[in-house]
């Protein structure tokens, strides 16, 4: 995780600057403790174009040192739940969670994000709709932050976006926030062209993968691999995952959790490759995997 932290140094400085500002406006509400937690929507571009997709970030910021959670919170905690308020003609097509940190404490594992995270939400817009400008996009978030204790939070934010009449105008108005690129680099990629098999064995769930040729992974990358399951309870998150190479395929027997995956169930998760030790600026590379679980041979 050192790599992740190092890679986010710029971001942490930026948060510190913002936290200073936040101290001012939080103090205005006398009855509100200046906790520093915040839900904020950020637009990648100033204008959207009818018929073209666009991306917004949902920034979840915790108190320094606290964490919030990934889609599978792990052995404790709670995943953030987002509810969108969208104008007619705008449709959410997906929300990408960056690769979480694996936080292991006292024999339990949490998947989450220390200090802050950007969840990248993708939207589609209708091509032939005459949008009344500006369009307003809102999000309400139920989320939880934890350190020694856990605090459930509710937050919301709204953004107004102008609609460019034509793609060219949209491009002209576009001022891409470079932060989007940094978070996108931490988002798992689809495992197109990968071979993925999951089979129940006596010792646990055998996960066998064959990376796509174009994945650009070193031949010994399996030594730094770890599978983060999407479903809570199916796998033991604390147990070491002993990956091994078998020709071009890599395999690990994953120890079952209290609610083991069943035959026919879809196993979903993210295969994370930590950066090489000493590669401080690198972020983990990750692919989203999916396989139908096969019963015992």
């Amino acid at each position: 995780m050192m790599g992740v932290r190092a890679g986010l140094n710029g971001g942490i400085r930026w948060v510190s600057a913002l936290a200073g500002l936040c101290g001012c406006w939080c103090a205005e509400g006398a009855d509100r403790a200046p906790t520093g937690e915040q839900v904020r929507l950020v637009a990648e571009r100033a204008a959207v174009t009818a018929g073209a997709p666009f991306t917004l970030a949902v920034e979840l910021r915790t108190r320094p040192g606290w964490h919030t959670y990934w889609m599978n919170p792990g052995d404790s905690g709670l995943a953030p739940a987002l509810r969108w308020q969208l104008p007619d003609g705008v449709r959410l097509t997906g929300v990408a969670f960056p690769v979480p940190e694996r936080i292991e404490e006292e024999g339990m594992v949490s998947f989450g994000y220390t200090d802050r995270v950007w969840l990248l939400a993708d939207f589609a817009t209708e091509k032939d709709r005459a949008f009344a400008e500006p369009i307003e996009v809102g999000v309400s978030v139920d989320w939880m932050v934890c350190l020694d204790t856990c605090v459930p939070l509710k937050g919301s934010d709204t953004l107004r976006l102008t609609v460019g009449g034509a793609a060219a105008d949209g491009e002209k108005a576009a001022v891409a926030d470079p932060e989007f690129g940094r978070w996108r680099a931490r988002t798992p990629q689809p495992a197109n062209g990968w071979g993925v098999q999951a089979q129940i064995t006596r010792r646990g769930l055998a996960l066998r993968i064959r990376p796509a040729a174009g994945a650009g992974l070193a031949a010994d990358a399996w030594k730094r691999a770890r599978f983060y399951p999407l479903r809570r309870g199916g796998l033991d998150l604390v147990a070491p995952q002993r990956w091994r190479a078998d020709g071009a395929a890599w395999e690990a027997i994953l120890r079952n959790g209290p609610e083991p995956h069943k035959a026919g169930e879809s196993l979903e998760g993210v295969l994370v490759f930590e950066p090489e030790p000493g590669d401080r600026d690198a972020v983990p590379r990750a692919w989203s995997l999916r396989a139908t679980v096969k019963g015992r041979p």
Binding site: D75, S76, E105, E106, M108, C146, D148, T149, C150, R232, G233, G257, P258, E259
Partner: peptide
């Protein structure tokens, strides 16, 4: 058997 959820035991 199910997977418990919640806070960590303190």
């Amino acid at each position: 058997v199910t997977a418990p959820y919640g806070c960590t035991v303190k």
